[in-house]
Write a protein that binds this DNA or RNA. Sequence first.
RNA 1: GGUCGUUUGGCCGAGGGGCUAGGCACAGGUCUGCAAAACCUGCUACUCCGGUUCAAAUCCGGAAGCGACCUCCA
Length: 494
Amino acid sequence: MQPLLVYNTLSRQKELFQPLTPGRVGMYVCGPTVYGDGHLGHARPAITFDVLYRYLVHLGYKVRYVRNITDVGHLEHDADDGEDKIAKKARLEQLEPMEVAQYYTNRYHAAMERLNVLPPSIEPHASGHIIEQIELVKKILDAGYAYVSNGSVYFDLRKYQEHFRCYGRLSGRVIDEMLSTTRDLDGQTEKRDTADFALWKKASPEHIMRWPSPWSDGFPGWHTECTAMGTKYLGETFDIHGGGMDLMFPHHESEIAQQTSVCGHGPCKYWMHNNMITINGQKMGKSLGNFITLDEFFNGSHKDKDGKEMLEQAYSPMTIRFFILQAHYRSTVDFSNEALQAAEKGYNRLMQAYKTLGRLTASKTSSIDVSAYRQRCYDAMNDDLNTPIVISHLFDLAKVVNTVADHKATLTQADIDELREVMETFIFHVLGLRDETSGDNAALVDGLMQMILDIRAKAKAAKDWTTSDQLRDSLGTLGITVKDGKDGATWSID
RNA sequence: GGUCGUUUGGCCGAGGGGCUAGGCACAGGUCUGCAAAACCUGCUACUCCGGUUCAAAUCCGGAAGCGACCUCCA
């Protein structure tokens, strides 16, 4: 088994990954709130943890991967009546709340499929786990770390902090000062401390999404779903909890508090957080209104607030995926057309080299040593999923392939096979890229192209440049590039 | 304001005390009927100011810029 190091936000250092149960991994990742189309920012955790999931499976672990769908609960920022996000959107569009949630869930799934993000093992919906969340709130009340106030239930952060003294450890903030300074503020609030967070919220009369509970007709608090569903499907303690850095506080911090208050310890061993995607140096986010949806990337059109077109062209799902993987998941990555275009070309180069690999002819000896590349790729993955380094090694291999194809170096059949296996493993299985150029009719297109290239070869042999160029130009307008080489012509779809 | 992080060549981005990723772009060359691709060569950078060290982009201190979180957010 490869020794995998992962950066644990809790300890702020890389730790050797050792699952709680040998051979098995439980991981939970915070999924989307389905009240809008997924944007580039949503692709980051999905792809990051998809790679982690793929890699763990590749290493031989049996992984249960849980990624939730948030379809209830979160409060709307600008709605002072505390209206549910889903409900607000529903009223706007005259749709049932669940219709809206379903619509955007479907669209999210479609986008994920195009990005080649594998579906998780379990995708629980918050709305389907209201009972579990109520049970969790009851437990926290029984343990004495929550109080009922006007039909709502709040987490008693002050009391929790007195006993456990660990609220703020994950996100690195000192909560004691916050508690001591906010105590005597505004008497109108239902909360004892402004830092207290809701476990159950009483619904206002016009609030559509509501469920009965021992305290009121209402809806669960901001952070309960992850605790309830994580516990239900992965147990009281599981291995990895992932999500975006912006969820560290207060979301994950509160999850830890909820879990700790009822069983004395947090939900997981390793906390992993991906960094943000920025646009013009600023975080791409829903609230900032500077996000570009995934569909807009795929279609190549997005107008910003001033009506200016932000996308110079369409970017394929694999270009997006490659772009994201070319940066380490804990670094911010800045969107720009230039960077995306560079990623597109790099991705095409890699795919082209992989295809060229299939045409290599073996020699009796190898003039290049390819034995070390496999472990180098593993080493990079093992170092906290350093996908940019993996990609750099894959480019090295691409160069090896091309050099051999140019007859400037030789490889034995065994080395060619090794090369193919390493490239296949890391490009397709671990990084989860896929060849976008080969569609359903790949075999048919192959046959047709071979036929055309044969005709062109004959024209070339007869020095009939008019015909050969005409064929090449016509194919070019269809998006097919013909490349003449020493061993005959090859082609690729742009 | 508090906490944390970041600053790498024309661009994107790894690395992280001496050996200096990778991609894109650009320039020259090889091959080729031409083109494209591929290959070869060049472009060899680490915000600033101090300090530690035989040696610092890399460690320490300070400054500046940028950003994240502190509120829904991936």
